[in-house]
């Protein structure tokens, strides 16, 4: 197993705890909708629709799931509504596992040294916090990590990342606020290369995906890093806020267009938000969800596990 083999039972409990609210309400609703019924009728499907839509799964994906269930009802002639829970789980897992080939395998390509991760996303999703936790994750596996403070725009963003670097005990490359982010990224990978570091994580300023100039800036940051390491960044991690609704689709689309996002992180899943939009995004864009954030503590970042996520959503 790779560096993330410590995804143990303890972690799983944390995920369960983080998603507890979700689980309770979803299960309660499903149970309520199936009580006293023996077949999946329209009422049950309506309730199911409500549950999924209310979890931000989105209309398209919800219809897709319901269609699958309906066709199973037809094919299998009859099944009791109390089977609905497991069938629902199966169908959602099926949507998620359709992109099995890109599932996170539990280790990154260690031939790449340093392995460069560029973190992108809209404002306020938790990029810097995720980087802090991520750095801790790598460090605890004995990797040397260098952070690059390329968010030179938001007030005190560099300070925020510096505090994280101190807290975790990793080095950080930074310049003045307002400096050219591409130049910071360049310095960071250059420094990491010469110090033979294992992992580089580049923080970038939050930007709304409909601002063409800011999106072009990301492309530039990426290009400049390639002058030092030709196939960097190896990972472009798009951070999505778990409480974001259907706009997350557009974010995934636009950031992918600008920077070829190849990994997702969902944050703030310790709240009441369900993060259901990730099901649709995973289905549509074939980008794996790698990490989820379930709290503000340094340990509160987990490797995303599709099966466990679905299980935690619907109880296992």
């Amino acid at each position: 197993m790779g560096i993330f083999s410590f995804f143990t039972k303890e972690k799983k409990q944390q995920l369960d705890k983080g998603l507890e609210k979700t689980k309770e309400s979803v299960l309660k609703k499903i149970t309520r909708s199936v009580v006293g019924k023996t077949t999946v009728d329209d009422d049950v499907l309506d309730d199911l629709e409500e549950i999924l839509i209310s979890s931000d799964v989105g209309v398209d994906t919800t219809l897709k799931i319901i269609k699958r269930i309906e066709s199973r009802v037809k094919d299998e002639k009859y099944f009791g509504a109390n089977e609905l829970n497991s069938i629902l789980k199966e169908e959602i897992a099926a949507l998620l596992s359709e992109n099995e080939q890109s599932t996170f395998s539990g280790e990154f390509n260690t031939n790449e040294k340093p392995y460069v991760i560029m973190v992108v996303g809209v404002n306020g999703v938790g990029k810097t916090t995720t980087i802090g936790k991520l750095a801790h994750l790598f460090k605890s596996e004995g990797k040397t990590v260098v952070l690059g403070a390329a968010d030179t725009f938001r007030a005190a963003a560099v300070d925020q990342l510096s505090i994280w670097a101190d807290r975790v005990g990793v080095s950080i490359i930074k310049q003045e606020m307002g400096a050219d982010p591409a130049s910071v990224a360049f310095d960071t990978v250059t420094s990491a290369k010469s110090s033979n570091a294992d992992v580089v994580i580049i923080d970038t300023a939050g930007r709304l995906h409909n601002k063409v100039n800011l999106m072009n800036e990301l492309t530039k940051i990426k290009r400049v890093m390639q002058k030092v390491i030709p196939n960097a960044p190896h990972e472009i991690l798009l951070v999505l806020d778990g409480s974001t609704g259907q706009n997350a689709f557009e974010q995934a689309k636009q950031f992918t267009l600008a920077t070829e996002v190849n990994a997702l992180a969902m944050t703030k899943l310790d709240g009441t938000a369900k993060g259901g939009v990730v099901i649709g995004i995973s289905d549509q864009f074939k980008i794996p969800v790698k990490y989820i954030g379930v709290g503000e503590g340094i340990e509160d970042l987990q490797i995303f596990n599709k099966k466990e996520y679905v299980n935690s959503l619907f109880g296992s």
């Binding site: 974001t244 706009n247 997350a248 009441t272």
Partner: peptide, 15 residues
Amino acid sequence: VDSMTGQDAVNTAKE
């Protein structure tokens, strides 16, 4: 509140 918030906006605002 973030204008991109999804269905959870209701729970949060209410609380």
